[in-house]
């Protein structure tokens, strides 16, 4: 089985063009933070299920930038409709990565529907995201990410991961996160106060 922290590091190593990454609630954004902060990272401190809508908004506003949503299985199950919305809009620059541990891990490892029954890739394909794939192992995951992120989307990659907890904790300051993210995307006002 793959590991979220490890996969997230492999993803970040593939980012060469200041791609924006939206880390979903809980472990997903903690491991994004632990993989090394980048100015183009956005960390969600709530709003379960909204990593893909936020990423879609960024992708629409900045069509030349690659945008990646990192989401847990419990979270995407809460908001499956967004997969249909994304399939309709076909943003070329959007990639979705689902870290599927079959549980709501952060609330105490309660099983999700993906544990025994629901198949996220099949659901995504059914929603119209034809370019949706299960990563078989770490090497395959990296192969699937060996592409440009600003074209060829929308792409969904799902990975079955182990039950290890996240390896870090994001700073819990929403306005700081938003302001730094906007600076990272070139849309912030922060520059005016930089020394």
């Amino acid at each position: 089985m793959m590991n979220r922290g490890d996969l997230t590091k492999r993803l970040v190593a593939k980012l060469k063009k200041d791609e924006a990454v939206i880390g979903g609630i809980g472990n997903t954004n903690f491991d994004l933070y632990a993989a090394g902060h980048r100015p183009q990272n956005f960390y969600m401190l709530g709003s379960m299920g909204l990593a893909c809508p936020i990423a879609l908004g960024v992708a629409l506003a900045q069509p030349e930038r690659g945008v990646i949503a990192l989401e847990g299985d419990g979270s995407i199950l809460m908001n499956l409709g967004v997969l249909a919305t994304i399939a309709q809009l076909k943003p070329r620059n959007l990639t979705i990565i689902i870290m599927d541990n079959g549980t709501y891990q952060i609330t105490g490892n309660q099983p999700t529907a993906t544990k025994d029954t629901a198949d996220i890739v099949a659901i995504a394909k059914g929603a119209g995201l034809s370019n949706s794939t299960w990563a078989r192992d770490e090497k395959h995951f990296e192969e699937l990410l060996s592409r440009r992120f600003d074209d060829g989307g929308p792409v969904l990659i799902a990975a079955k991961i182990d039950d290890k907890p996240a390896t870090g904790q994001t700073v819990r300051d929403p306005s700081l996160i938003r302001s730094r993210f906007m600076q990272g995307l070139g849309t912030g006002r922060g520059g005016a106060l930089d020394a």
Partner: peptide, 26 residues
């Protein structure tokens, strides 16, 4: 305009939040 039909209102709000951070008002 860039119209987007969303499946839920919170999805639509998430999208508008992302777009704002990316430099587009919604």
């Amino acid at each position: 305009f860039m119209p987007v039909s969303a499946t839920r209102e919170d999805e639509a709000v998430g999208m508008v939040a992302g777009a704002w951070m990316g430099g587009m008002r919604g």
